[in-house]
Design a binder for these strands. Sequence first.
RNA 1: GCGAGGGUAGCCAAGCGGCCAACGGCGGCGGACUCAAGAUCCGCUCUCGUAGGAGUUCGUGGGUUCGAUUCCCUCCCCUCGCACCA
Length: 899
Amino acid sequence: MSADGYDHETVERRWQEAWADADVYRTPDDATDPAYVLGMYPYPSGELHMGHVRNYTITDAYARYLRMSGEEVLHPMGWDAFGLPAENAAKERDTNPREWTEECIARMKGQMESMGFGYDWEREITTCEPDYFRWNQWLFSRFHEEGLVSRRDAEVNWCPSCETVLADEQVELEDGVEICWRCDTPVTQRELSQWFLEITRYADELLDAIDGLEGWPDPVRGMQRNWIGRQYGTRLPFEIGEAPGASDEDDTGSTEYGTVEAFTTRADTVFGATFFALAPDHPISETVAEDDPEVRRFVEEEADPEGDEPNGVRTDLTATNPVTGEELPVFVADFVLSDVGTGALMGVPGHDDRDHAFAEKRDVPIEPVVAPVPDDWNPDSGTVPDAPDVSESAFTDDGVLVNSEEYIGLESEAARERITADTEGAEEATQYRLRDWGISRQRYWGTPIPVVHCESCGPVMVPDEDLPVELPEFVNTTGNPLDAAEEWKETTCPDCGAEAERETDTMDTFVDSSWYFLRYVSPDIESAPFDVERANDWMPVDQYVGGIEHAVMHLLYSRFFTKVLADHEGLEHREPFTDYLAQGMVLLDGSKMSKSKGNVVSPQEIVAEYGADTARLFMMQAAQPERDFDWSEEGVRSTHAFLNRLRGMVESFVEDDPDGDDDAVASYVESEIAATVAIATEEYEELTFNRATREAQDLVRTLRQYADYTEPHAETYERGLAAVVRLLAPVAPHLTEELHDELGGEGFVAEADWPDSDADREHAEHRRRLVENTRGDVRDIIEVAGIDDPERIELAVAPDWTYRALEVALESESPNLIGDLMGVEEIREHGDAAADYGQDLQAGREALEPTLAREEERAALESAAWLIEREFDAPVRVVDADPDAGDAEPGRPAIEIVE
RNA sequence: GCGAGGGUAGCCAAGCGGCCAACGGCGGCGGACUCAAGAUCCGCUCUCGUAGGAGUUCGUGGGUUCGAUUCCCUCCCCUCGCACCA
C-alpha cells in the first residue's frame, strides 16, 4: 500500500519524536484555567481497540483545535489499573497482577503514541500505584469522618468451591441455575459485612442538579434521574396481629407483631386494599416461618423473586387498614422485595396490575375505588361516576374516588393529600431507587480498605500517617489472597494497641475513577489528593468524552464525590463535567466489534497499513461523534487516497510555483477559502468533525479544480492549501505537520494559529446556493433546448428595482403587496414588469427569503463564471438584465445561451 | 409495562413548514484520461417519457395548514435504558 502512498511510518515517527522533544502537549502548572478536555481513562487490557481510538481521537482533535485557537489546554491520560481481569490473567500465567498490568500499560501507551494522541504524559496517573490509591484510602477516612461510611450486612454471590465472592457478571445462568463462571459450581447467596458509601444522602442534590447539566445528552440525564428514582408517596402504618381464632393458645396477641409501615404512591386507593404482603425475608415472615410449616416451605423453596409469576402464601396474620379499620389477610409474597420501600405493601388489586394478577391467583377480592374522570366531569356537581369494572384488569390511572366514604368524589391527587393528612400515623414520605454504594470487594487487585478490626474497639480507621496500606505479595489461591496473607493481616489496633486484624476487602474500582480527573491537576502532590487551589481554577472538566456504558455509575459516583469534596475539602465546584459527549460505537457489518465474535478490526493493523492519520480521519468523517457507524474498508481506502492527493498537491505546488493572475477565478477561490474556514470552525466548536472535515475536503476539491482550469494565482492557492492543512491538523496531525513544513510554515502546525475568517456563514451559503442554482439552470436549459455545443452563455443579473421590490415584500405586512410595491416610485415606473413580479412575490409570499444584494450577486456570479465555462466549454459573461424584461429575479439571473 | 431515541431512494445518511424527487457519501451505469489497470476528472442513477412534462415517494392511517419529509394524533417496527419499584 505504501508503494502508491506516502511513507506514513516515517512521517508519523518523525513528528511524534519532534512533539515529544518540544513538549508540545505539556500543560504548565501555572496555566490559568486551561480548557480541560478529557477522555475516560482505559482499563489497561494491553490492546487499544477501535472504541478507544474513536474516543481518544475525539478528545485529541478537540484539544488540538482549542490549542490552535489560542487556548491553554489540559489533556491528560492515565490508567484505570485495578480490577479483576489482571488478577485472573496473573493466575492463568502464573505471574502477578502488578507485572501484568505494567506490561499492558507499556504496550497500550506505545499504541497511543503511535496514534499521535497529544497527551501531557507528565500528568499520567496509574491507580494501582500506592501514590494514587493511598488517596482512595485517605478519602475513605474523610468520608468516614463525615459520617458517609457505614458497615452493614449485605447479600453477595458466593462460590462455595472457589471460596470467593463473585461479581454479578461472573455469575452465569445455566438451565435456570446460577453457576460460577470458573468452576460451574452453583452460586449461593451469602451475607457478608460490607462497607458502604452513603450516596443516598446526596440523592436529592444528585437528582435536582441534573436539571443544570445542560451540556449532557438528554438520554444520560434521563438515565440518571431514573436510577435515582425519587418518588413521593405516603407511609401508612398497618397493625399486624393474629387473625381471630387462628391460634387457640392466646387471645392477647393481636398486636404482637406491632406496626408495619407500608409505602405507597397511591394512598388514594387505600379503600381498595384487600390484602397485605410481606417480603419473604421480612423479619415478620421469618418469625412466622418458624412456626408455620407452609410459610417456611414457601420462603425456603417456592419464593422466586426473579420469576415473572407473583407467588405467595397466606399467613394466619391480619393487617389493620389504618384508614378503614378493615382486617386484611397477610401474605408472604415473593414479588415484595425487602429493599424496595419498607419490604411490605398494601395490595390494591383493583388499581395495580401486579396486585391484580396476584389477587386472581389467590382468590382475593378485587374492589374498584377509583373511577376514570368522565369527560364532562364537574367536581362541584355532587355526582359521582360509576365504579369501573376491574374484574378483568386493574384501572391504574388517577381518577375520581368512589366507594371511599368521605373521600368519594375527590380526585386522586387531592385524595392522597387528604388521606395522608387525616390518617393517624400516616406521613408523606419520599422513596429512592438509589441504594447506598457497597464498595467492598473480596479480591486482591484493588485498594485495601484502610480499616483494622480490633476485638475490643471494633473496626478502626487506619490513621492517615500510616497510609497507604499497601497490598501484600500476590499469592495464587482459591479465595481472597488478602485473607491468605496471614502476616499482612496481623497488626495492632491503632486505638488500644491490642492485636488486631486488617480488613481484607478492597475497594470497588469505581472509587478510583470517581476522582481521578482531580488528580491530573496535580499528579505528584504528596500532601493531598489534589491541589485545591489549582483544582478550583482548572476544574470542572470542560469536555468529557466516553462510552455510554458509564452513563449511570461512573458519572453518578463522580458527581457524588465532587459534591462531598465541595462540602468538606474546599473544592469550589459541585459538578465535575460541564459537557459530556457519549461517543457512538464502531460497528462491523452492523454489529458491535467483539473478540468473542471474531469480528474485530485491529487499530494496530490499520495504522500499519494506512497510517494513524488515515485511521483518525476516517473515523472522524464517518459520522457524528455520538453516532454509531459501520467500519468500512472502502471508506478507509478513500480517506487514504484523499490524504495522498492532498500531499501530491502540496508537493507539486512547492516544486513548481504557479504564476497565474489574481483574477476573478482567484477571487472565487478566495471567498471559498473564507467560507470553508468559517464553517469548519463552527463545526469544530460543536465537535461535529464529520462536517468540519467534509468542508476541508470540499475545499481541496475546489483547489484542484482551480489548478485544473487555469494557472493558479500562487498566493491564493497557497493560502488555500495552508488553510486546509490547518483545518485538518487536529484530526490528521502527522501529515499536516509534514505539509505545513513543506509549505514553509514556522514551527509546528500543532502550535500554529487557527485560521480566521470574516466570512458570514449564512452569506456564504446564499452564495453557494446562487452558484449551484445557476449552474443547474444552465444545465437544464442546455438539455431542454438540445444544445450540443454552446457558443457563449450570458447571465443577466436582475435590475435594481427587483431587489428593492423583494425588500419591500419581505417587510410588508399588508394583505396584498401590490399596493405597497406600487407606492415605490422606482418600482412603479417599470409598469408591467413590476406588476408581474409583484404578482409572483405575492403568490410566493410565505416562502420569501432574503437574497444577496445585487452587487454581491453580480460579483459572486462573475467569480463563479469559470465553473460554468469549465463545465460547458463556452465563455460566460455576466451582464445587466433589461430593467423592463422581467425575466431575471434576485437570486435567479436570466440565462441566455447562444448556440 | 415505563422512559428515551429512531424508521428518508440499492445501502449509509442530511434535511425537520414553502427553494424537496429530497444535500453528501458508497455502490451501479456511461464518458474523459491511459497501451491497459488503478488513481483522478465529468455526467447519469424513484417510475414513465427523446424532451417539455406527468406519476408515485420520506414506516402506517388520520389531522392541522393555501402548502408537511418537516407540526399534532393513532398504530406498526427497530435500538437503548429501567423494570414484579409498592
